[in-house]
Amino acid sequence: MTTAANRAPEQPSPRIRRAAYAGALALVPYATMKQYWALDGSWGLPAGYATLGDKMAADTHGRDLGPVNGAALWLYEHGVDVTVVLAALGIFLLLGLVRPWGLVFPRRLPLLAGRPVPRWLPLAPAWATAAVLAPVFGVLAPVNGVLAVLGLSHPNTAGFSPFAFTIAYGGFGPFGLALGAAAWSYQRRTGRTRRTAALTPPASP
């Protein structure tokens, strides 16, 4: 007899899955543009903008990057922008909330293969990130955009062209909203599975 604890974990609805895929794709323009800038591309940058490459050439070594200074410089020296890595991790997190490997560790992972993924592992960073991105970029940014189009607001884009600014940062809103929806679905599904397993008596020998 199969118990609830041995059943396949509940999967997200097609709507949540589509939202997650759309949110993941929404970050691709941001990552692409940041990587383009890391490779010394200049389109979309304000005139006179000092890139990390410029700072390194001037022997300032990007010290204004603060605590991520060492990692950012090492990645940049290898042709990668640290924010591209963070975007990739964000996409990985979002997809993990709607894919089977976000519930059970894949078999190719040593020691962890086949074990349930602890709920807190994806939920903690997902809720923390969604709590910041969803209201700021998913609600306030679109409202400010509409006001700007109507001439009622003049947002500060720090000298970046509006088009480049939109491409680079427009995906944060859809990503944050999708992350919140996927986290809610993941939390509800995994919580239901555990409650059902706790209430199901063990199988008779």
Rank of each mutant, 00 (worst) to 15 (best):
V143E: 05
A158T: 12
P67D: 09
G145K: 07
L73E: 09
L147Y: 00
A113C: 00
L73K: 12
G96R: 07
P142D: 02
A148Q: 05
W120I: 13
R119F: 05
P135A: 08
L147I: 02
P155V: 03
R115Y: 03
R63A: 15
R108V: 11
A88R: 10
L89P: 04
L75R: 10
V85H: 09
P122K: 11
G114T: 02
W101K: 07
G138E: 00
N144V: 03
A113Q: 05
R108F: 14
T83G: 12
V85K: 11
N144L: 14
V68G: 11
P135Y: 09
V84Q: 03
P116R: 15
G96M: 09
A58G: 00
P122Y: 01
N144Q: 11
V82Q: 14
L140Y: 10
L140E: 08
A128Q: 10
V98W: 00
A58S: 04
A134H: 02
A158Y: 15
A141T: 10
P122C: 05
D81C: 10
D81A: 15
A126Q: 01
L65T: 04
A158I: 08
E77Q: 15
I91L: 05
G62S: 09
P110H: 08
G90N: 03
F105C: 04
M56V: 12
A126M: 01
P118C: 04
V80I: 11
L86C: 07
G151T: 01
L140S: 09
L86S: 13
L152K: 14
L140W: 13
L123G: 02
W101L: 08
L111T: 10
G62Y: 02
I91K: 01
G114D: 01
F92S: 12
V132K: 14
L140F: 06
T157G: 10
L93V: 01
H154W: 10
G70T: 11
A158P: 06
F137A: 10
